[in-house]
Computed example of a mutant assay.
Amino acid sequence: MEDDDILDAQDTSEGPQPRPQSLMLAFFGNHVLEEGDVGVYSGSIIDVLGRVGVGEQAVRSTLTRMVNRGLLRRRREGRRMFFGLTPQATRVLQDGRTRIWQQGAVNDDWDGSWTLLGFSLPDSWKRQRHDLRSRLTWSGFGALYSGLWIAPGNIDVSGVVEELGLAAHVKIFHAQADVATDIELMIRDTWDLESIATRYVLFDKRWTAHLDAGAGDDPIGTRLRLVSEWLWTIRADPRLPARHLPPEWPARPAQETFRRVADHTAGPAREMAHELLETTRMR
Rank of each mutant, 00 (worst) to 15 (best):
T12I: 06
R74Q: 15
R76P: 01
R79M: 14
A89F: 14
A105H: 10
S42P: 03
L93D: 04
S124G: 12
P20N: 03
V40I: 13
D109K: 09
L25F: 15
E35F: 05
S120K: 12
G53H: 06
D8Q: 08
P122E: 12
S124P: 02
L25Y: 09
V40T: 09
F28H: 11
G104C: 13
V92P: 00
V67Q: 14
R60M: 05
T64R: 08
L72G: 04
D95I: 08
G36K: 04
H31R: 01
L7A: 11
L33F: 05
D108K: 07
L117F: 10
V52L: 08
L7C: 12
A9V: 02
E56I: 10
L33I: 04
L25C: 12
A9D: 02
S44F: 11
W101T: 04
E77Y: 10
M81A: 13
R60D: 12
N107G: 09
F83N: 07
V48K: 13
R99E: 11
L116H: 02
A89P: 01
M24E: 00
G70K: 10
R99F: 13
G36W: 04
G118W: 05
A9L: 00
L49R: 14
Q21R: 10
Q103V: 14
D37N: 13
D8I: 11
R91Q: 10
V52T: 03
L121S: 07
N68V: 07
D109G: 00
F27Y: 03
E35P: 00
Q10L: 12
Q10I: 07
N30W: 09
G78E: 03
L49P: 10
G43I: 00
T86R: 05
V38C: 06
N68D: 15
E35Y: 02
W114N: 03
R75C: 01
R76Y: 06
D109F: 12
W125Y: 15
G70I: 02
V48M: 10
V38A: 08
E14D: 15
T90W: 06
T98H: 05
R75P: 01
G29Q: 03
P16N: 01
R73V: 06
Q94A: 03
G112I: 08
P20D: 08
L25M: 14
G84F: 03
R97L: 06
G50N: 07
V92C: 08
L33D: 06
D11F: 02
L85S: 06
D111C: 08
F27Q: 07
V52C: 00
L63Y: 12
M81K: 10
Q21V: 09
R19V: 00
V40M: 09
A105S: 15
F28V: 04
L7P: 00
D37Q: 05
G112S: 01
G50S: 07
Q21P: 04
R69I: 03
T90R: 15
Q94K: 08
S22D: 01
G39M: 05
W114V: 03
L116I: 11
G70N: 05
Q10E: 13
A58C: 03
D109E: 09
N107R: 15
T90C: 02
V38Q: 13
F83V: 05
V59D: 06
F28D: 10
G104H: 12
W101H: 09
V38H: 11
R91I: 01
S113H: 07
N68S: 12
S13W: 11
I46N: 11
A105K: 06
R74S: 15
D11C: 00
T98W: 08
Q17K: 10
G70H: 11
